[in-house]
Nucleic acid binder design. Structure first.
Lengths: 342, 342
DNA sequence: TCACATTAGTTAAACGTTTAACTTTGTTTA
DNA sequence: TAAACAAAGTTAAACGTTTAACTAATGTGA
C-alpha cells in the first residue's frame, strides 16, 4: 500500500498535523521541521490521498462539462476544442474536468449526468444550447453553473460568450470593404442567440455603411446550421437573387455547404463570388480555396469558463457576462467583386 | 448540506450499516426493511458521497487517459475520437475518464500527470506513442496500464491495436485491383510500429499480386506523418518516378498533403493519379475529391480499451493483444489508371 | 517579576462510507 | 430438550486527511 501521512509523521518524528501543515506551507512550522518533513515525504514517496482530502474538505475537485450529444456530433471540432481549453486550464487550477453528453431532448424523468448524481463536481459548465429543464434541475440542486457559448435570459449564472455581434460586423464589413454591396446572409435556428447576434452584426454593418438591408438576401429557414442546410440555403438565395456577389454564412459548416453549391454550379470562388464563414474550424484549411472566416478563440473560451467558475467557487462572486473577442481571418474565399458571371 | 447515510438511517429507524447493505443489495436484509430504507432514501434525496466511498474502498473510480500534446495537436480528430469512445464506454462501467497530455520529450525529472501524483486513477490508458521513460515510471508505480494504438515490445500490458497490416493490404490491394502497378508509398517515422505495419501490408499486397517491390517508390524520410511532410514526400517521389500512377499514404494527413502537391502541379485526381489514405479522419469529406481511405473504428478503439482495463481491474487477467479490424472506404480519389499525363 | 504575546507544535474530532465481527431471535436437528 | 444453525440486523473500527482548539516553551514590555 502507498505510504500515508502517518508513515511520514512517524518517519519524521512529528505529528500528522505537522505534516499536513508542512504540505500546506503553513507559517506555523519552523524552517527546520519543514525541511525534515519534506525530506521524509521525499524518501517515502508520499502522496496525499485525494479521496481522503476530498472527504474532509467537502469538495470534489472536479468540474463537470455538459453538452448535448447532438452538438457534439454535429460540431465536434468546435466544442471539442472548448472542452480541451477547459481541460488545460483546469489542470493549472486544481480541478479535473469530467465530460458528459446529454440528449438534446432531455426531459424530466431522464437521468442527470452521473457526476451530478454522485455529487462528484463542484461546479458545472454547460457548452452550447441545452434543454431548459436540464438547466432547471441543476439550478435546483444549487450546483454552481456557468454557460459557455450559450446566452441565458435569466441572469442567474455567468455567460462566457463569443462577441457574435462584433464578429458579424467584422465579416460583413470585410465584404463591404472589398466593394461588395449585394451581400447575402445564410443562417439557421433563429432562436439561437449566437446565430441571431451574428445576424444583428450583419445588419449593423450594412447600416454603418449606409447599405440598405434587404430581407430577400437572407435565408435562415433551416433548424441546424450544417453543411447540407448551407447548400440548400445557397441554392434558394442565389436562385432568387441573381445579383448577389457575396455571402456571409453564420458558421463554417454552412459556408462549406455554400461553397459546394457554388462549385457545383460553376461559380468561381472568389472571382465570381466571395464567401466568408464564422468559427474557424480547423478543417477550413483543407478547402479549396481556403475559407475566410471569423476566428473564435475556442481554447480560450474553454479556459475562460474554467477561470470564471473556479473563481466563483473561491470568492462566490459572479461576473454576469464575459465577451471573448473574435478575429477576422482573411483567406482566399473573399476578394473584390470581380468578373461578373453570365 | 446534503443528507448523509446517517440521516437516512435515522429516518428509516435502522443503522447506517443496514442502509449501506440495502444500497448494495445485500441479501441479509429483509424485503420489508429494504422497502422502508429505499423509501427514506427517496424522500430525503439521498446520494452516497463518492469521496467517502472512495476512501474506504480504496479506489479512485477514474481511468487516466494519456497522450502526448504533440499527437493531440497534430492528429487531434483521431485521438479525440478514441478519447470519446473511452469516455462513453466508461460511463456504462463505473468510471470517469481523466485526460492528460504529456510532452513528447518527457524526461526523468518531469512531473507525472496530476492524476498519477494524486493517486486519482485506478488504471491508465496510453494512446499512441509516448516516451519510454514515462511508461517505465508508470510501471514502477504498479498502476494497471493498457496501450491503445501503440504496440509495446515487452508484453507487460494489453495492447489494443488497429489491424494495420490488414489495412495496408486492403489499401494497396484496392489500388492493384483497379489496375495500378506503379504504386508509391508515403510514410514517416519508420520507428513507429503502426506506420511500419502499414508499410508491411503494402509490401505484402504487392507480393501477393506478384508485383515487384521497388524501394524507389517509397518515401518515409520525415519524422511526423503530417500534411506538410506528405506534400514534400509526394514531390520527391513523383519527381523521381515519372511513371507512378498511384500513392498509398500512411495516413490521411499525409494523403491530403499529397493531394495538394498533385493539385499544385496540375495532376487531376483520380484521372491522372489515384491516392488512398489511412485513418478516415472526418475532414476527408471536405476534400475535393473525397479521399478513399482505410477506416479505423476510433470510437470502438477507445471503448475497447476501457473494457480491457476495467475487466483487468475486476479479474486481474490481461489479454495480450486485441486487434480491431479496419475497413476499406472507397471514395473518389481512386480509379483505374486513366489518361496518362504528358 | 509578572502578565501577556508569540512561536511551534500536538491532540483529537470530524468528514461519510464500508464491512468484519458480533448480537439477538427464531428455527432445525439429533 | 439441548445444541446447532440461520436470518436479520447492529456495533464499531477503519479509510487518510484537515483543522479548531489546545499546550508548552520562549520572548517581551511595564
Amino acid at each position: 500500500m502507498n505510504p500515508t501521512i502517518k508513515d511520514v509523521a512517524k518517519h519524521a518524528g512529528v505529528s500528522t498535523a505537522t505534516v499536513s501543515l508542512v504540505i500546506h506551507d503553513n507559517s506555523r512550522i519552523s524552517p527546520e521541521t519543514k525541511r525534515k518533513v519534506l525530506k521524509s515525504i521525499k524518501t517515502l514517496h508520499y502522496l496525499p490521498s485525494k479521496s481522503a482530502r476530498d472527504l474532509v474538505t467537502q469538495r470534489a475537485g472536479n468540474i463537470g462539462f455538459i453538452i448535448t450529444d447532438d452538438h457534439f456530433l454535429r460540431t465536434e471540432p468546435f466544442y471539442t476544442r472548448i472542452f480541451l481549453g477547459a481541460e488545460f486550464e483546469a489542470r493549472d487550477g486544481d480541478y479535473y474536468v469530467l465530460l458528459a453528453t446529454v440528449e438534446s431532448n432531455f426531459n424530466e424523468e431522464d437521468q442527470l449526468p452521473r457526476f451530478i448524481q454522485e455529487r462528484n463536481v463542484d461546479g458545472i459548465i454547460i457548452a452550447g444550447k441545452v434543454p431548459q429543464n436540464l438547466i432547471d434541475r441543476i439550478l435546483e440542486l444549487k450546483i454552481p453553473l456557468a454557460f459557455v457559448d450559450y446566452e441565458t435570459t435569466n441572469n442567474c449564472c455567468p455567460n462566457i460568450l463569443i462577441d457574435n455581434i462584433q464578429g458579424g460586423i467584422l465579416a460583413t464589413s470585410h465584404l463591404i470593404g472589398l466593394g461588395h454591396k449585394q451581400i447575402g446572409f445564410v443562417g439557421a435556428d433563429i432562436q439561437h442567440p449566437s446565430l441571431l447576434k451574428r445576424f444583428t452584426g450583419y445588419k449593423q454593418a450594412l447600416e454603418n455603411a449606409k447599405i440598405g438591408f434587404n430581407d430577400k438576401f437572407v435565408e435562415t429557414g433551416s433548424l441546424y446550421p450544417d453543411r447540407q442546410n448551407g447548400y440548400d440555403a445557397a441554392k434558394k438565395l442565389i436562385e432568387k437573387n441573381k445579383n448577389l456577389t457575396s455571402i456571409f454564412a453564420c458558421n463554417d459548416a454552412m459556408a462549406i455547404g455554400v461553397m459546394h453549391y457554388l462549385k457545383d454550379n460553376g461559380f468561381k470562388i472568389p472571382d465570381d463570388f466571395s464567401i466568408i464563414g464564422f468559427d474557424d474550424v480547423e478543417s477550413d484549411l483543407l478547402l479549396d480555396p481556403p475559407l475566410s472566416t471569423i476566428r473564435v478563440p475556442k481554447i480560450e473560451l474553454g479556459a475562460e469558463s474554467i477561470r470564471i467558475i473556479t473563481s466563483y467557487l473561491k470568492t462566490k462572486t459572479i461576473p454576469k457576462k464575459i465577451l471573448v473577442p473574435v478575429e477576422l481571418i482573411i483567406r482566399q474565399s473573399t476578394s473584390a467583386p470581380g468578373s461578373k458571371r453570365i
